[in-house]
């Protein structure tokens, strides 16, 4: 006798609405499992079949997953903070103070955003150390390492642009110093600083530019590169595990992923 929940689920999966959304139909056959992947707009870029071992999150010591988790936390809390924050000189500082002392749960959300940001930078570095010392950057994964380096740079830029937004002394001098570093670029350094700040000093234009970079341009580029990063994991033979090393495979006299991938 099936449980009532199973019966209800079964009935739901038979409804016309459900079947219009999930067309793969009922069943646990290989074909059905493949169709689930192939017919989902979010999953269809991935291969329909992949070895479970290759997607085991433990293979990255969960560091990649945790970095993604902090990123998602930052998106959610960041969007919520945007509802109270005005990127303007007279209001920015007081808005942050309001978030801390007036807005309900504002303190919690701001601190969550802040600690997630610190954690994301730490986890991205830890993830890269693991990939480096495990040798997981080696072919065929070398391009995904490059994508990862771009993601690290985007993470650091997100961290840096967010630093200005509280508009206090710490933020002001950090951005003064940081943009002066960019003016050390030969020939075009001063121009880069001028374009970054939208002027010669850290002022209203700089606040607005950093806000747009922090809330729109950098997160969108991060999502773009994250999509490529996750897609490449599967295309490069899954997450790196010791068994995928050619030597280990030969020793075990079993066919490895890399051999199977060869045409």
């Amino acid at each position: 006798m099936p449980s009532p929940i199973a019966t209800a689920l079964d009935r739901l999966e038979r409804t016309r609405v459900w079947r219009s959304i999930f067309r793969s139909g009922k069943g646990r056959s290989t074909l059905h499992n493949a169709l689930v992947i192939q017919q989902s707009v979010f999953l269809h870029l991935f291969s329909v079949k992949v070895r479970k071992r290759m997607l085991s999150l433990g293979a990255t010591w969960y560091l990649g997953t945790l970095t993604l988790a902090t990123f998602l936390l930052l998106v959610v809390t960041g969007v919520l903070l945007m509802l109270y924050y005005h990127p303007s000189v007279p209001q920015a500082y007081t808005d942050v103070k309001d978030l801390q002392f007036v807005v309900s749960s504002g303190l919690f959300l701001r601190n969550l955003h802040r600690w997630s940001a610190h954690a994301m930078v730490f986890l991205a570095f830890a993830h890269m150390f693991r990939v480096f010392y495990r040798g997981a950057y080696r072919p065929p994964r070398e391009f995904n390492w490059v994508v990862g380096v771009v993601l690290l740079l985007i993470t650091l830029l997100l961290s840096y642009t967010g630093y200005l937004l509280p508009w206090d002394q710490l933020a002001y001098w950090a951005i003064t110093v940081g943009t002066n570093i960019s003016s050390a670029v030969p020939l075009v350094g001063d121009k880069i600083r001028f374009l970054l700040l939208g002027g010669h000093f850290v002022n209203a234009n700089a606040l607005l530019r950093f806000y747009v970079l922090h809330c729109v341009i950098l997160p969108l580029s991060a999502v773009l590169f994250l999509a490529v990063h996750f897609w490449r994991i599967r295309k490069d033979g899954g997450l790196y595990v010791r068994e995928s090393e050619p030597g280990a495979a030969e020793a075990a006299q079993t066919s490895t992923t890399e051999e199977r991938e060869k045409p």
Binding site: F194, L195, G198, G199, H200, N203, A204, N205
Partner: peptide
Amino acid sequence: YYRYLSPSVLFE
């Protein structure tokens, strides 16, 4: 875009 991103008037 370079021209657009360089402010023509600065309130400095």
